[in-house]
């Protein structure tokens, strides 16, 4: 009886809120058509699917990846993916929050605007462009960096072809491109901090640094977490940045799951295998997000998702 009454109420509520559902309909339709219908395609991971063959082969693709011919490359790519994307995520959070805080401290509105404008610019460049700029700048033959080194009497360095240089330079370039853009969301959050809180903190005799830690950071911690967790979902998708900066000399150390999947799937036409790699990647991504959100829920008591 109780259940029936509950159900009645729910039905009434749904009927009452029909306008909300109507407003949500376009979103739902798009998601179903463009995301869910193609998702049936993950079944390709269990097929030998090439331009000529469509054969169900069970877990063969995964066996090949996990323990078969492609295993060394696959696990290497997996390790690299985690290393590059998680390091990058941590760096990005630290740098973007720091720069946003410092920008917020600039007194002159004009200066702040100018710095912001310039910081955001590289984000508008595509990766192809960014990579060609830096390949040019870091060139051992014509690049400015090596020109300067030569003036100082140092032998030119082929930065992008050496493992020990490639990794730090990769992080530098990614951060150069995206740090400014990453600050936007934090700046928006910072602008929402109630000025009275600062006044109150100042009354209590808190210095600037103290204010940052006791007022500013707590105020934007939700935003930081949301952005962090959402970005974790994308962590496994790291692709273009690596793809455009890769070269044969650093393959082993730079191959990530997506570049591997792209080569095998798109370039070699082995779509089943490519999908298998993608599927594995998606599961890891889902695991990361749900795991982090669970921790977040334990600590803060509310979910981001």
């Amino acid at each position: 009886m109780v259940k029936a009454r509950d159900w009645d109420r729910t039905r009434r509520q749904i009927r009452n809120d029909w306008m909300y559902y109507a407003m949500f309909a376009p979103v739902l339709v798009f998601v179903i058509i463009f995301n869910y219908v193609p998702m049936v395609g993950v079944s390709l991971a269990f097929y030998k699917f090439t331009p000529f063959a469509r054969k169900f082969i069970g877990l063969d693709n995964f066996a090949d990846l996990f323990v078969g011919i492609r295993a060394p490359q696959f696990w290497r790519a997996f390790g690299n993916t985690l290393f590059y994307s998680i390091t990058n995520l941590v760096l990005s959070t630290i740098l973007s929050v720091t720069v946003a805080l410092l920008l917020n401290e600039l007194v002159s509105r004009k200066a702040k605007g100018l710095v912001q404008t310039i910081l955001y610019l590289p984000h508008f460049m595509s990766w192809v462009v960014v990579s060609s700029i830096f390949t040019l700048i870091l060139s051992p033959q014509v690049g400015i960096v090596n020109n300067v080194l030569q003036e100082l009497g140092i032998e030119p360095i082929y930065f992008l072809a050496q493992q020990k240089w490639w990794t730090p330079i990769y992080f530098f370039i990614v951060r150069w491109k995206e740090t400014g853009w990453g600050t936007i969301i934090y700046l928006a959050a910072l602008s929402g901090v109630n000025p009275e809180l600062y006044e109150a903190a100042e009354m209590d005799g808190a210095g600037r640094l103290r204010q940052v830690f006791s007022v500013t950071l707590p105020a934007i911690v939700t935003t930081i977490l949301i952005v962090f967790i959402l970005n974790l979902g994308k962590v496994m998708n790291i692709f273009e940045s690596v793809f455009v900066l890769q070269n044969p000399n650093v393959y082993n150390a730079t191959d990530v799951l997506t570049t591997f999947a792209y080569r095998v799937g798109v370039q070699q036409g082995n779509y089943g295998m490519g999908t298998a790699i993608d599927l594995f990647k998606s599961f890891i991504g889902l695991f990361l997000v749900l795991g982090t959100d669970a921790i977040n829920r334990k600590i803060r008591g509310s979910s981001v998702l």
């Binding site: 949500f24 869910y36 193609p38 395609g41 993950v42 799937g265 779509y271």
Partner: peptide, 29 residues
């Protein structure tokens, strides 16, 4: 917050961020 099915919608949409059908199925659709 009080909308029936809100949690479901949120998760339904969120899943698409991590999972996608891949190139060929999307192309076919």
């Amino acid at each position: 917050k009080k909308l029936v099915g809100r949690g479901f919608f949120a998760k339904f949409i969120f899943v698409t961020m991590v999972f996608n059908g891949g190139l060929v199925p999307t192309f076919l659709v």
